[in-house]
Design a protein around this nucleic acid. Sequence first.
DNA 1: TTGACTTGGTTGCATCCGCAACTATAAACC
DNA 2: GGTTTATAGTTGCGGATGCAACCAAGTCAA
Lengths: 173, 173
Amino acid sequence: MAQAAVPYWRAHNRDTPPTMTDPTSGFDLETFLPYLLNQAAEATSHGFQTVYRDRYGFTRTQWRVLANLGKFGAMTARDICAISHIEKTKVSRAVAALEQGGMLSRTPSETDRRAEVLSLTGKGRTVFAELGSLAVGFDRQLRETLGPEKAETLVTLLRRLIGGAPATDGLDD
Amino acid sequence: MAQAAVPYWRAHNRDTPPTMTDPTSGFDLETFLPYLLNQAAEATSHGFQTVYRDRYGFTRTQWRVLANLGKFGAMTARDICAISHIEKTKVSRAVAALEQGGMLSRTPSETDRRAEVLSLTGKGRTVFAELGSLAVGFDRQLRETLGPEKAETLVTLLRRLIGGAPATDGLDD
DNA sequence: TTGACTTGGTTGCATCCGCAACTATAAACC
DNA sequence: GGTTTATAGTTGCGGATGCAACCAAGTCAA
């Protein structure tokens, strides 16, 4: 029950309290993690989205696929799915669009004729470098909102949620 | 740089390291907050989404609007936008769908003839109560993944990101 | 009052997404 | 081998979304 000092809704432009009837269940929307995570994701992604949308017409998924390829190097669509937890159809379409835009190229896998190895083209790497450096600045701003240790903590907690790992995995406190 | 023990990609079903070329910029996708937040939001929301989708055919936005009305009581669409940070067109359509389904009713505002006060019907409250109690259980599971204090910390940090508040607002540590 | 501007809310349209179905290849089992 | 099952990736289609344009009502000021 930390931080109940600012009544939350007061921070926004209501001037009457939302009456807060909460009829029965002990459900508390204000601390419901999926809800908060969605809001935070939307809030933080929206700002950076305008950058890659306005500059390159990328969709969010396209940017993410590009970023994965830029960060980790050539790999198959399946690998991107596994690493990024993006649905395979989204990846498929993003790859098609990025290829269309000359950002990446496909080469058939030598070990699996179903799979194709995806790698950024020179243009793709250039674009990734530019967006990457912009992303660094954007991320720094977000972290300043939290403070450096808090930001690290957040990263750890998010990873744990993403991986679905149990709480008893070493680091606690 | 906490928690580099498990190489991240190894947790997923790759067996070759993604080569990790990261050409130039210091951009680190693995700690990029918008990216992690999106993954976490997607991962945590997806599970519960099946609950309200299968039971009531709700979309995520519809569930969220219902939850806000259930939690805070009657208010206008504008208030929902302000509190939840959902785009107003999304809210508009969700409200229409919920009304269509008999979950809420609109009454013209007495102070502003443009606005309509939205309130859950009896059916809406019933549905909210059921989904709310399911949500409680779902949230508890997520929190067990993190541990109670960590979960509280996460809530605090997410709120700060959502509100865009500066780091110097009282509580630190 | 009039007029300029803001704001609550909806709608058109293009796009994106989710899910299921599908093709083609690989693996597993006999 | 041959048969069954699993996997990499694409596509069709209905539905959800984002953005801009819009309408109607409120606000502010002369």
